[in-house]
Design a protein around this nucleic acid. Structure first.
Lengths: 221, 221
DNA sequence: GATACCAGTTTGGTATCCCAAAATGGTATC
DNA sequence: GATACCATTTTGGGATACCAAACTGGTATC
């Protein structure tokens, strides 16, 4: 694999895992040294991550995007639009066997599963569900939205109760989809997204002081 | 303005104006010479345009994305999701004065207006309407979708009848939005998008031979 | 003590160089 | 004439050099 893709992948992982804090300054030279690459692949990676919303320009330099509560609320609205559209397409399809694969993803998580895995599967559920629609644009929209939500969702994943609730809602959405009940599935998905947003925004507002103490920039709604 | 943004903007314009044909090979060295910039800004521009879907990788090199009928159909579905979501948000807003600005855009086009202007305003109508929603993600989704449609829409703009019809539909959508009639506005917008897609796909299927004769790559649905 | 100012350093933007891989084109062979 | 083969050129990926602008830290001035 090329250096370019390596730097991009590794830097993205560090940002998403909060190993580089939201709001933190980035210099091309630091990344260069950190990953043993030259500036050419570093710049390519930064340009990519900029379009993903993970880093942004701060005057002349680069900054890891802060966690932005207003953005989280806007993303929820965006998700409702694209995820429901994708789900309705999927409900209309004859072959529902692919849904079993997604259900199996959910089943793979139990009390012994590490948090990172719950976090990943919780995102992949929505991404893979959108992929089933067969619409590349809806799929990418969902994937990109989940990427932007990823860092904030580390909070949700700390809460056992919230996880159990999310998984129940996921299963209910799959059940309705399997039966082709588009309206019901859409209603459940909408409620899931809105509820998820509410829990996230509440958690973030509560933890804001703690996060700032860790040096994380959290922008209010 | 920096070279980087210049190359990006100029190259995008050449591609959207079909001055560089769909499917055409691009070399970084050619762009370098064409715009008098070095490879660093050229590569930044290519990376950006890649995320916009205007250029793509062809093995090791770069290619101007072909016009893809299957993609046009998927974009229509995507547009229905995001544009209607945005429109519903706008319908729920108290202040409707911004709609007058959009109506004025439509009014600015008459029989003396050049085709390029009709083309631009036809896209900006949808982009600016989405902007009124206040949701940055829905706005960007619509803007990016219109960018991808832009090249194919040169065909629609050649057809007087289609233009008149589109403008009437635009005005009807604005009228319903101004009254806050979300369902009616959504219905009109949906019909407009679907109709527009049908005319576009039909035109493209008919002109496909002619386009190919001009060296343009057109991929079937 | 506060502030204006200046030299030195850092940084992103750009240009250029190097390299391996791929494309090209001509030639020898059958 | 078609084809296999090889030397040459081209090309994108990467590394490095250079520059101007921004930043930093300290100093002189009031």
């Amino acid at each position: 694999m090329s250096q370019m893709q390596n730097v991009e992948r590794q830097l993205r992982e560090m940002i998403l895992a909060l190993e580089i804090g939201p709001g933190e300054r980035l210099t091309e030279r630091w990344i260069e040294g950190r990953f043993g690459a030259s500036r050419t692949p570093v710049r390519a990676a930064l340009l990519r991550l900029e379009t993903e919303g993970l880093v942004g320009r701060d005057g002349r330099g680069w900054t890891v995007s802060p966690i932005n509560l207003a953005e989280l609320e806007q993303i929820a609205v965006y998700r409702e639009a694209v995820e429901i559209a994708a789900l309705r397409l999927t409900c209309g399809q004859a072959d529902k066997s692919a849904i079993d694969v997604i259900e199996a993803m959910l089943d793979s998580c139990d009390e012994n599963t590490p948090r990172e895995e719950w976090h990943r599967v919780g995102m992949d559920f929505h991404i893979e569900l959108a992929r089933l629609s067969g619409n590349e644009f809806l799929f990418r929209a969902v994937r990109d939205a989940m990427t932007r939500l990823s860092r904030a969702r580390w909070l949700e994943v700390r809460d056992e109760t919230a996880l159990g609730r999310a998984w129940r809602e996921h299963r209910a959405i799959l059940a309705a989809t399997r039966l082709g009940q588009a309206d019901e599935a859409a209603r459940l998905l909408s409620a899931h997204i809105v509820g998820s947003r509410d829990r996230l925004v509440t958690s973030l507002a509560n933890d804001r002081r703690g996060l700032r103490a860790r040096g994380f920039a959290v922008v209010a709604a």
